[in-house]
């Protein structure tokens, strides 16, 4: 028994090292001077130390602009997703109206539409109204993916009817009931949907690649990809890796803070138990 546990622990440590090593290596290169990396880039301990790579990001190129674009698109997209989808989910779960079942089924059917297969028609649509290279073009299609409606409706169904009925008897309007009573009760579910949406939006690649073709409108995800084919950048490995660290850091911090919520969001979204 003891030996089995020891073997498992060793296996876990080896795998964890394998999984973390590539990330660690990126950070090592990001703090190593570029000219040292030209000679040797495979050292696992920084051969020198500099923050110049990070300061360079602020001065050269559009990385800061891309970073801001990503924040704007992701924050707006996540906020809109949460509000619109929670309201729709609340109506589907707690209100009685004609066509409810039909509309809800239609919404759930949207879960079957693969996002990556739809970029050509979406592109045509935005092209017709000259809507490309705008923030709205980047976040609106994401708001339409009905995952949050599905998760929130499940959650709202678990709230007893007596809660909404009591509010109604007290004379609260449906909007007031929703924002003052239901939303505060739903913070855990909202956080799970929110953090998952945030990560998926921040990491969107194909759609921003197609829609935002002007360099100033790149997101950090497409911007970072655009630097990778560039040979001049390859000679400045440290600067390139520093941009990678900057692009990944906000998500990594969010992940460390909201890890449990994210994991709950993932198992909820796949139709698993929660």
């Amino acid at each position: 028994m003891k030996i089995k546990n020891l073997i498992i622990t060793i296996l876990l440590i080896v795998l964890a090292v394998v999984w973390i090593l590539p990330l660690y290596w990126m950070i090592v290169m990001a703090i190593t001077p570029n000219d040292l990396l030209k000679l040797n880039s495979t050292a696992l301990w920084p051969q020198g130390f500099t923050l110049q790579n990070f300061f360079g990001v602020l001065k050269i190129g559009l990385t800061v602009r891309w970073f801001l674009n990503s924040i704007i698109v992701t924050v707006l997209g996540t906020a809109l997703t949460l509000i619109l989808q929670a309201m729709a989910a609340f109506a589907f779960a707690k209100m009685r109206f004609k066509g409810r079942q039909l509309l809800f089924s239609l919404t759930l059917a949207g879960l079957m539409v693969p996002k990556e297969a739809m970029f050509i028609p979406l592109f045509l649509m935005f092209a017709q109204i000259n809507g490309h290279n705008s923030y709205a073009a980047l976040y609106l299609p994401r708001v339409a993916i009905p995952m949050g409606v599905f998760i929130m409706a499940q959650f709202f169904k678990g709230i007893p009817d007596s809660v909404t009925e009591a509010a109604q008897i007290d004379g609260a309007t449906p909007l007031r009931t929703f924002f003052n009573i239901i939303m505060p009760m739903s913070i855990p579910a909202l956080t799970s949907v929110g953090i998952f949406t945030y990560i998926l939006t921040w990491n969107d690649f194909l759609w921003p690649l197609v829609s935002a073709t002007r360099k100033e409108m790149f997101t950090i995800t497409t911007g970072l990809a655009s630097l990778q084919g560039n040979f001049a950048q390859a000679t400045e490995l440290g600067s390139l890796m520093a941009r990678g660290v900057i692009a990944g850091l906000p998500l990594f911090i969010l992940f460390l803070i909201f890890q449990r919520h994210l994991i709950r969001g993932i198992s909820m979204s796949s139709g698993g138990k929660y």
Partner: peptide, 25 residues
């Protein structure tokens, strides 16, 4: 009426960006 403004905003976005593109394709 309340149902309308609860469901409509999402359904409009959904219809335009998720359903319509299918037909467009």
């Amino acid at each position: 009426l309340p149902v309308l403004y609860f469901v409509l905003p999402f359904m409009v976005v959904y219809g335009i960006f998720q359903i319509y593109p299918l037909f467009q394709a």
